[in-house]
């Protein structure tokens, strides 16, 4: 086993600004999308997450079809967090207030969200068992959490991708973020988060700030336009990879981030890291929920990444 993809799982229902959407319950949440971004390239990867008992009710078929390793999936309560996302015209989204209040299992669902959060020990259980190359997690900047995690990382020697959580992107969070970055090799943030964190207005200003962070690579996601792959003073802008259809952008940020973690841990250069992130995102946007069949698209993904890389290199 080479890769661990850890964190929260959600069950998503998505509605767009024009009223269209899907009433099907889709697999979602940062870890699941990021897992798909790794699984697209390699089967040697596993989810490390805590879920509700209803997880298998919805997703057993997908797990079975894709031979997903189940060892890291722990059932700790009755229900997964069910999320009803409504997109706004600007592409951002919020929870549907109507369905949130009526259709969630628990009114205090955020408490369950906390109960199911990944602990450093959850990661350590598997990073000590396998010779892990890389780990992904969307996480906050709690000092205690990072202290425990840094000890595990030092012990087991893997690379780590931190996808920052939005509440940590307030300007007063910088000190705690820098503490977290001490244990981070590759970092991922989107444009709204970066503008808030650095109190700036433009992508260029964000990039200048991101270049100064003490990590090897930063994936700076700028929505449907694509992303920047930043490594020190090297900055590559990579437009979104072409997709044959655009259905649902939910999870594209997590998917591309997971994929970037894989590419980085495999030793690819910053250009290829960004390209592989975009290619994974282009696969994610083709349907509601996660990539349904990895075997069916893996060859195409490798081919597309190589072609894009060759084109950029010219």
């Amino acid at each position: 086993m080479d890769y661990l993809v850890a964190g929260n799982v959600m069950v998503d229902i998505v509605r767009f600004a024009d009223g269209s959407g899907s009433d099907r319950k889709n697999m979602g949440g940062p870890s699941v999308f990021a897992y798909s971004g790794v699984k697209l390239w390699t089967d040697s990867s596993m989810l490390v997450c805590k879920v509700g008992e209803d997880f298998y009710e919805y997703f057993d078929e997908w797990l079975e079809k894709n031979n997903v390793v189940r060892e890291g999936i722990k059932v700790v309560c009755d229900y997964c967090n069910h999320s009803f996302l409504v997109y706004k015209e600007d592409g951002t989204y919020m929870g549907d207030p109507e369905r949130f209040t009526k259709e969630r299992h628990r009114s205090d669902w955020i408490q369950d969200f906390g109960y199911m959060k990944t602990t450093p020990e959850d990661i350590g259980e598997f990073s000590s068992k396998y010779n892990i190359k890389g780990v992904y997690l969307a996480q906050n900047n709690d000092y205690v959490w990072w202290r425990k995690f840094s000890e595990i990382k030092k012990r087991d020697g893997f690379k780590f991708m931190w996808e920052i959580e939005a509440p940590c992107c307030e300007p007063n969070q910088m000190e705690a973020n820098l503490n977290a970055l001490k244990s981070t090799d590759i970092f991922s943030i989107n444009v709204q988060e970066a503008c808030s964190l650095f109190e700036v207005d433009t992508e260029e200003e964000c990039i200048e700030k991101l270049k100064q962070l003490p990590v090897d690579v930063t994936i700076f996601r700028v929505g449907k336009k694509g992303l920047y792959s930043i490594a020190g003073n090297e900055v590559f802008f990579l437009p979104s990879a072409p997709a044959d259809r655009v259905v649902d952008p939910t999870g594209c940020g997590n998917t591309s981030t997971g994929s970037a973690m894989y590419a980085y841990s495999e030793g690819h250069d910053p250009l290829m890291i960004g390209i592989m992130a975009n290619v994974a995102s282009a696969q994610n946007i083709r349907q509601f929920g996660v990539i349904p069949d990895f075997d069916a698209v893996r060859e195409f993904a490798y081919k597309q990444a190589k072609e894009l890389y060759d084109n950029y290199k010219k």
């Binding site: 955020i110 408490q111 369950d112 969200f113 906390g114």
Partner: peptide, 12 residues
């Protein structure tokens, strides 16, 4: 510190 923190600290 939010409900999420409360949930994270729940006794198992």
């Amino acid at each position: 510190y939010g409900s999420q923190n409360l949930g994270y600290l729940k006794t198992t």
